[in-house]
Each structure stands twice: as C-alpha cells, then as structure tokens.
C-alpha cells in the first residue's frame, strides 16, 4: 500500500493529512473534554433559574455585566475566586461578556441577597448612590416564561445529557439532585415551589400576591438566577 501511495501523490497527500489530523484529535480532544467537564460543585440550572437567565438575556444585562472573574488579586478580592472553564458547563450560551460597565456577576450569589436585589432592581440609586444602572420596574409585573425554560431543560437534558433528576456531586462530598418536571404543569409547580422560597424574603406585596396566585413575576426568576451564581 505504501508503494502504491508513493506513486499517487494526491492520495499520499490525503493520507498525510489524515495522519496529522488524527494525531491532532488524539492530542486536543481529550484535554478539551477534560477542561469542559463540569467542576465539582457546579449544578444545572433549575427551571426558575433558567427562566431568570432568559430574563437576564432578554434585558441585555450581559451588555454591561460580565460573568468571568479573571485571576488577578484585584478581581478575586472584589468578586471571589477566579472562574474555571468547567464552571460554565451548563451555560448555554455562556455570558462572559466583553465589557464591564457594571460589576462582574459570576459570583454575585455569594455577596448579594434576595432582598438586596429586590430593592436594587426597583431603584438602583436608592441602594447604590451614584449608580448609573437603570431601574427595571417592568420585571415586577411581567410574568416569567416558565414554558420556554422547561423546553430548554428538556432539550439540554436530551441532547447534551445535562444531569437533571440525577445526583450531582458537590464540593463537600454530598450530592444534590436538580429536579426537572415531567410535564409542563409539573415544571410550573416546581418553579412555583422555588419562587415561594424566594418571595418569603421579599417585601413587594404585589409580587407576593402574584406568586400566591400561581404567577411568577420576572423579578423572582432573575433573583433566583442571581442567587444561583456562586
């Protein structure tokens, strides 16, 4: 066969290409796969958190806020540990951003809380004097789209094997199971149960009433998402 290849330059070139390509795949793919494997302690987004992520994208929060802590002392002092690529395993798409008009939000769940977000999204300047962030009053009335969030969960669970309803290892050695509904109605009730926990820490009566009536305003979803960023 090699003799034949030597006489046929075109096929020789093809075989050379295939050999080098194979070597490249063997070298690159395993380390790539290793890097993108979820870091221990990274868990998939719940239905409500995903809905909040959609609100985040819809309002272009990523236009001003990054989600990537770089390994510099000045950044880790302010935002917490630097990011690892495996932490973005369940982010589709990741929202690294390219410009920080506002602060980084990748670990905002570690140092801001439900009630803070509630006050801040309603009137940023009341909480942070001099802030240039606009208020997002419509989030308190718009209803979050749980159906789309559930559709995304179904899709990623099926096509990317995101481990919903399966034990996910955490840093302390325990495991956590992130539930995904079996039907749309099921997904709604799961999201509502989650929303009730968040609303317990909120003060806005309209939002509390909406959740009590089975509606989930966008603010609850985005707070769930913010709190999940740790």
């Amino acid at each position: 066969m090699f003799h034949w290849l030597e006489k046929n330059p075109f096929f020789f070139a093809v075989v050379v290409f295939l050999t080098i390509a194979f070597a490249g795949i063997v070298e690159i793919l395993p380390s790539f796969a290793q890097q993108s494997r979820p870091v221990i302690g990274t868990k998939p987004y719940t239905t409500l958190e995903l809905a909040g992520r959609h609100v985040y994208i819809k309002n272009s929060c990523n236009g001003c806020h990054s989600q990537l802590v770089r390994p510099f002392k000045s950044e880790t002092d302010r935002y917490g540990d630097y990011s690892l690529s495996g932490e973005y395993a369940y982010d589709r798409p990741f929202l690294w951003g390219s410009k920080r008009t506002g602060p980084d939000l990748w670990r905002v769940g570690n140092y801001r809380t439900t009630d803070w977000h509630e006050n801040h999204m309603k009137d940023p300047i009341a909480v942070v004097p001099g802030s240039i962030m606009p208020a997002y009053p419509w989030m308190y009335t718009n209803i979050a789209d749980i159906d789309t969030a559930f559709a995304e969960q179904l899709t990623v669970a099926q096509f990317f094997s995101v481990p919903y309803n399966k034990p996910v290892p955490m840093k302390d050695g325990s495991t956590v199971i992130v539930k995904m509904g079996k039907s749309v109605a099921d997904a709604h009730s799961l999201a509502l149960a989650e929303a009730k926990l968040i609303v317990a820490d909120m003060k806005d009566q309209d939002v509390k009433d909406a959740v009590a009536n089975g509606q989930i305003p966008e603010i609850v979803a985005i707070i769930a998402y913010m709190n999940s960023l740790k």
Partner: peptide
C-alpha cells in the same frame, strides 16, 4: 429580621 447577610470569608 430584615434580610440575609452573607459570610465575608474573603
């Protein structure tokens, strides 16, 4: 009674 304060281990 008002809200939650995170730990400041950093």
């Amino acid at each position: 009674a008002i809200g939650e304060m995170p730990a400041f281990n950093r």
